[in-house]
Design a protein around this nucleic acid. Structure first.
Length: 420
RNA sequence: GCCCGGAUGGUGUAGCGGUAACAUAGGGGACUGUGGAUCCCCUGUCUCGGGUUCAAAUCCCGGUCCGGGCCCCA
């Protein structure tokens, strides 16, 4: 049997070129800044966890979608498909005594065994945060405002924020006499807007026809006052308060959508999604809301909420919108005119680098013509030409690459002159 | 996992049974001390494996990867 070599990049994974990394790091830096600006602190958890961490609530069926393996100690492990569960595990194990509110954020790779397509990879980067402690409406409003601000401030122009509330939907279903263990299949149909099937299912569950009709109307509500006409619970009141605070934080553009159903069933209460319509089929950039996981992991009950942003999609959205990312530029390129000048040139590039100037030097012993060409291709702002004629006078030439103007300066004055 | 459509030097493309081509990028040179111009030279390619055929980049089957959609979801 001959082995076929397969050293290609695995399906659904990507290599990132220097240009792409520059974009990604740029966006990451801004995200970190914004989180810190809101009082969040960064955490990191392992890339793999015990499989059970993910199956505990989501059920065995998610095994189909995650990378699962056994280690040499026969432990069942999984590459993390998301970061909320690991971060909450971390909280339960080591951070329960921290003062509240506890604001944590993360940027990390996650893995899902999915069919890859644009904006959807088997290895992808998730950005997110968890807010632990407060359950006030202003806390949730701030969280949603943060998600919105992040996407706006990294430069995405066109985003759509939609708010929903699972407590209200659940209350409605309970009022109709639907049992809790029947919610899940109904929520799925709601999510897909398959109203005909939904109606059929509810009818099978012996819900009265007029109630089904009302429920369908309720799901179409696109503002909070209409929701109030259908149902009166504390959840509606709280939802209204969240919306009011959201406006105070400064967001007026959002939609109310009772059809928002988060994929993972530990969500409850206020939920939200943010889309970038420019992305097409995989347009969801962010999803989040209140959830309950701490008691499930053995911790003391506490309010938790959070959101996750698809980092890769955010990058694609920026690219699609024509966002101009910064370029990496070198400040000074040092060119020894001939090999005798090399030692001198190395001393100069060292001196520049020690003074925190991005400097590079010709390593291919090329002539002046080729070196200048190279310097312009790497977008050097200036070149320093180290030649014998000037060396006799203890000088070098500084050439400004955009204007082409040259000045001869004393080598000892080089540092102050390059900074100009 | 399912249904479509793709894959040709690093990149972008032409060729669509008969000697793989162009542009660009890369390296060297014309120009032994001045870049984005010109010219010359060099390097490098048919996604992979089978099959049909005298002959396959081209036709057929399968795999891999990518893109559009489904499922699911970030």
């Amino acid at each position: 049997m001959e082995e076929k070599t397969n050293i290609n990049i695995p399906r659904g994974t990507r290599d990132f070129s220097p240009d792409e990394m520059l974009k990604r790091r740029h966006v990451e830096d801004r995200i970190r800044n914004i989180f810190q600006n809101f009082g969040y602190r960064e955490v990191q958890t392992p890339t793999f966890e015990h499989l059970e961490l993910f199956t505990l609530k989501s059920g065995e069926e998610i095994i189909e979608e995650i990378y699962v393996f056994k280690d040499k100690g026969n432990r069942d492990l999984a590459l993390r498909p998301e970061l909320t569960a690991p971060v909450i595990r971390f909280y339960v194990e080591k951070m329960q005594m921290e003062s509240k509110p506890l604001k944590l954020f993360y940027i990390g790779n996650c893995y899902r065994y999915d069919r890859p397509q644009r904006g959807r990879y088997r290895e992808f980067t998730q950005v997110g945060c968890e807010l632990i402690g407060p359950d006030t409406p202003e806390a949730y409003a701030e969280l949603i405002y943060l998600a919105y601000t992040l996407l706006k401030n990294i430069g995405i122009k066109n985003i759509v924020l939609r708010l929903g509330n699972l407590d209200i939907v659940y209350a409605f279903l309970e009022n109709m006499g639907v049992r809790r263990n029947q919610f899940r299949e109904l929520m799925h149909l709601i999510d897909k807007s398959r109203f005909y099937e939904l109606e059929k299912k509810l009818y099978e569950m012996r819900v009265a026809k007029n109630k089904i009709k009302m429920f369908k109307e309720f799901l179409k509500c696109d503002n909070i006052n209409k929701v109030e006409e259908f149902i009166e619970t504390t959840a509606v009141k709280r939802f209204k308060e969240v919306v009011d605070f959201l406006k105070i934080f400064g967001i007026n553009e959002f939609e109310i959508d009772m059809k928002i159903v988060r994929g993972l069933d530990y969500y409850k209460g206020v939920v939200f999604e943010i889309d970038a319509p420019i992305l097409g089929a995989e347009k969801q950039l962010c999803g989040g809301g209140e959830y309950e996981l701490v008691p499930l992991f053995g911790g003391k009950e506490v309010s938790t909420a959070g959101f996750a942003i698809g980092f890769d999609r955010a990058i694609i959205a920026l690219e699609e919108e024509g966002y101009s990312f910064p370029e990496q530029k070198i400040d000074v390129y040092v060119i020894p005119v001939n090999e005798k000048m090399l030692k001198n040139a190395i001393k100069i590039v060292n001196m520049l680098r020690e003074n925190n100037i991005a400097a590079d030097i010709d390593l291919m012993r090329r002539g002046l013509t080729k070196s200048l060409k190279y310097a312009s291709s790497v977008k050097a702002k200036k070149t320093v030409i180290v030649g014998p004629k000037e060396s006799e006078k203890k000088c070098v030439i500084i050439r400004d690459m955009s204007s082409g103007k040259q000045v001869e300066v004393k080598t000892k004055d080089l540092l102050s002159k390059t900074k100009m």
